[in-house]
Write a protein that binds this DNA or RNA. Structure first.
Length: 471
DNA sequence: TTAGGGTTAG
């Protein structure tokens, strides 16, 4: 369905009055891109407590909740969820809760994810291992490893772990550097009657490769094939190739490409992106064109990541014009530049001291359909500090904190140090106040920054703390 | 809409 402007939807509803059907509402909601308008539509069909309640379909609830969750409009999402909880005509399917839990995970709101999991029974829905796995995944995404035991104890009463549970656990252990424990989970799976699958091996091999344990990774791949009868896929090869490149063995990565051809595993854009990146890393740039040609011959189209690798390669060669040309080529070939495409170019502009151009690109991103992310802010902030454009840096830091992004403690400390050296009292106080308001700096860094400020005789301890408390 | 690969930054 073609997306109409909101006023068209509203006009449709106004014309139909209360006669709009639950089916029609779902189809209107499906076509509505703006989550606020979708919510408005959803609410507009119910005339209030005086009249017969509108019989919302489960699909309408699903559509609105999903749109609000994606847009991080959590308060509104909870209101619709609460309304859904009051419906007695149907029970709510578990995947909807999995979705809600993953929205909270993405926003790093683990407690809200856990609360959602606990509320599932009140929606007349049975909690299976699926929603449990979503919570576990949320725990991993939010980095709340310390709460693993607490949450595991609660879950044991509701469901038994499956392969997916183990895979999430293995990934969490790899992520915190506990590779032996991760391996132990794999070894324990058959004892618990759980069969490891392709994902289990991928996650573990990926962990081993990230830690440069190539020997163990290849050994595990052999076990996977011989003992478990699982064929390696392109994802597994990409992990192994990246591992080879990490230890500097690009030839071994190309050897894996040959193996893929022999074993008839399809080479996709991720495989080529990994190899092209490796060539740039070791300075074998002359071979990039040939590989791109081979990619074309194999009917494999470059995707956004492939272009980003090429942009990053051009930047390494200090060829910004080529980077911009690639940005245009992306659009011509139906690939949308993403935040990484811009961050790479901005990073190079900062490195070359072209701060005005970097700032222009940063400010132009929204117009080009791309929102700057935390990395965009980090790049521009450190570029401005490097060039001693402290006023501009202070302004950007304030904006970053206001948007809820966390700056690096170390770069903030360095920035405060620079302001002290400059003796710019006014700006120093403004910066400290905006950091305090955003609660963007860890406590021990505050101590360090306050002692730094006072050591430089900018302010007395009492004077500074007083100012921060009362600002 | 249960879990998984390749690009930026630190």
């Amino acid at each position: 369905m073609r997306a109409h402007p909101p006023e068209v939807h509203m006009a449709t509803l106004a014309r139909s009055g209360r006669r709009v059907s639950p089916f029609r509402l779902s189809s209107l909601l499906r076509g509505e891109k703006d989550p606020s308008v979708a919510l408005q539509l959803f609410r507009s069909v119910d005339a209030g407590p005086e009249t017969k309640p509108f019989r919302y379909s489960l699909l309408s609830y699903d559509l609105v909740i999903t749109k609000l969750g994606r847009a991080r409009m959590f308060d509104e999402m909870e209101q619709v969820l609460a309304q859904l909880g009051r419906e007695t005509r149907f029970s709510v399917p578990e995947p909807l809760f999995c979705q809600v839990i993953s929205f909270y995970a993405r926003a790093r709101l683990f407690d809200r994810a856990l609360r959602t999991y606990r509320s599932i029974p009140s929606f007349r829905c049975h909690r299976s291992v699926k929603s449990w796995n979503s919570v576990l995944h949320a725990l991993l995404k939010c980095g709340e490893y310390g709460r693993m035991d607490e949450v595991f104890d609660e879950f044991r009463n509701h469901a038994s772990p499956d392969a997916c549970t183990c895979n999430i656990l293995i990934r969490a252990l790899c992520g915190s550097g506990k590779l032996e424990d991760a391996r132990a989970v794999l070894d324990e799976m058959p004892l618990r009657g759980i069969r490891p699958d392709g994902v289990t091996f991928l996650v573990l091999i990926n962990g081993l490769c990230s830690n440069s344990m190539l020997g163990e990774a290849f050994e595990l791949k052999d076990d996977m094939v011989r003992v478990h009868g699982i064929r390696p896929d392109a994802r597994l090869y990409a992990s192994l190739m990246k591992g080879c490149c990490k230890v500097g063995d690009v030839n071994m990565a190309f050897g894996l490409k040959e193996e893929m051809l022999r074993e008839r595993v399809e080479l996709d854009a991720a495989i080529y992106s990994t190899l092209i990146h490796a060539l740039f890393e070791v300075g074998r740039t002359a071979e990039v064109c040939g590989l791109l040609e081979e990619m074309r011959e194999n009917g494999c189209k470059p995707d956004t990541v492939t272009y980003n690798v090429l942009i990053s390669g051009s930047c390494k060669k200090k060829d910004i014009d080529e980077a911009y040309r690639l940005l245009d080529a992306m659009v011509e070939n139906g690939c949308k530049p993403d935040v990484t495409s811009y961050n790479v170019i901005m990073g190079e502009l900062c490195k070359e001291g072209k701060l005005d151009e970097a700032t222009d690109l940063f400010e132009d991103m929204p117009r080009r359909g791309c929102t700057p992310d935390v990395v965009s802010y980090w790049i521009l902030f450190s570029g401005l500090c490097e060039k001693m454009q402290l006023k501009e840096a202070a302004f950007l830091l304030d904006e970053m904190v206001f948007k809820g992004y966390t700056p690096h403690d170390a770069s903030v400390y360095k920035f405060v140090d620079l302001l002290c050296q400059e003796g710019n009292h006014e700006l120093l106080l403004t910066v400290l106040c905006s950091l305090r308001k955003g609660k963007a700096v860890k406590a021990d860094y505050w101590t360090r920054m306050i002692s730094l400020t006072c050591k430089n005789n900018e302010f007395s301890n009492v004077e500074l703390v007083d100012h921060l408390i009362n600002s």
